[in-house]
C-alpha cells in the first residue's frame, strides 16, 4: 500500500513538473520550435535581455506588484484591526462576507466589474488603473492573513499595555504590530504573488500603453510559439524558486520560533 502510494505520488509529481521542464529544455533550443531540439543556444535569453520593450514590461510588472502589495498591506492592516475591534457580531459578519466576496469572485468578474467602475469614474486605463485593480484584489487576502493573528492575541496584552501607561499609539505600535508581524509579512507575500501571477484582471483594466508580463505573454502566445517565452519562463521559474525557498525558510523558522521552548 505504501509503495503504491509512493509510486502514485512520484508519477503525479513528474506530471506536474514535466511541462515546466519541457519549457526550460526548449528555451535552450537553437531551432525555432518546441518539437525538435536542433542544438544548444542561449540566443533566446540574449534576445529577452536586449529587448528593451520586454525589460520595461518586466520592470512594470515588478513595480506594480511592489506598489500594490505595499499599499494593500497598509489598508489590510487597518482593516484587520478595525474588524477585530468591532463588537457587533452582525456588522462584523457582513463586513467579513464582503471581504470574502472579493476572494471567491472569479477573475473575469473582478476584471469586468472594475472595467465598468473605472469607465464610470472616468479613470483612464493604464498603470494607475492596473495598480488600483491589484490593490483591490490583494486587500482581502492581507486581511485574512492578519485576522487570525489578531484573534489569537490575548486581550490581556492590550490591557497590560494600557495598565503600564501606554497610549493608543503605543499599544498599536509596541504591542499589536509586533504581534501580528508574521501575518503582515505573509499577507504582503501573498499580495505580491497574486499581483505577479495575475493575468485576467489586468487584461481587462489595462490600456494600450501599459503592459505587464502576463498580458504580454498572452499576446505572444496567441501569435504562436516563440522560444523567447520559454526563456522568460525559465527566468520566472528561477526567481519563483528563490522566493519560494525564502518564503519557506521564513515561515518555517517563524513556526519553529513560536513552537519552540514552552
Amino acid at each position: 500500500m505504501k509503495t503504491l502510494g509512493r509510486s502514485y505520488m512520484v508519477v503525479i509529481f513528474i506530471c506536474l513538473y514535466l511541462p515546466i521542464a519541457y519549457l526550460i529544455f526548449y528555451s535552450l533550443n537553437s531551432g525555432g520550435t518546441m518539437t525538435s531540439f536542433d542544438g544548444f543556444t542561449l540566443e533566446h535569453y540574449q534576445s529577452v535581455f536586449t529587448d528593451s520593450r520586454l525589460i520595461v514590461i518586466l520592470l512594470n510588472t515588478v513595480a506594480v506588484a511592489l506598489v500594490s502589495a505595499g499599499l494593500a498591506t497598509l489598508i489590510g492592516i487597518g482593516g484587520a484591526i478595525g474588524l477585530y475591534n468591532i463588537r457587533m457580531k452582525r456588522l462584523k459578519q457582513s463586513l467579513l462576507s464582503l471581504n470574502n466576496v472579493m476572494i471567491v469572485s472569479p477573475d473575469v468578474i473582478i476584471g469586468a466589474s472594475l472595467l465598468i467602475l473605472f469607465t464610470v469614474l472616468g479613470i483612464s486605463l493604464g498603470a494607475f488603473s492596473v495598480i488600483m485593480a491589484h490593490i483591490a484584489f490583494s486587500v482581502p487576502i492581507v486581511v485574512l492573513m492578519i485576522l487570525p493573528k489578531l484573534q489569537d492575541m490575548k486581550s490581556s496584552y492590550l490591557d497590560a499595555a494600557r495598565d503600564l501607561g501606554a497610549s493608543s499609539f503605543d499599544v498599536l505600535w509596541r504591542v499589536i504590530i509586533p504581534h501580528i508581524k508574521p501575518g503582515i509579512l505573509a499577507g504582503f507575500f501573498m499580495a505580491l504573488t497574486y499581483s505577479l501571477d495575475d493575468f485576467a484582471v489586468t487584461f481587462f483594466v489595462t490600456g494600450s500603453g501599459f503592459s505587464v508580463l502576463s498580458v504580454e505573454i498572452y499576446a505572444m502566445a496567441r501569435r504562436g510559439i516563440s522560444l523567447e517565452i520559454n526563456a522568460i519562463s525559465t527566468l520566472v521559474f528561477l526567481v519563483v524558486l528563490v522566493i519560494a525557498l525564502g518564503y519557506y525558510f521564513i515561515t518555517s523558522r517563524a513556526s519553529v520560533k513560536r513552537g519552540g521552548i514552552t
Partner: peptide
Amino acid sequence: LLIILPTWINLLLKTYAFIGMFGKEG
C-alpha cells in the same frame, strides 16, 4: 512545497507549455 511551487509560475506559461507538448510533433 513541491505541489505549491508550480502555482507560483504564471498560469499562462504553463498553458503555453501544453501548446508545445500537444502540438502535431510535440
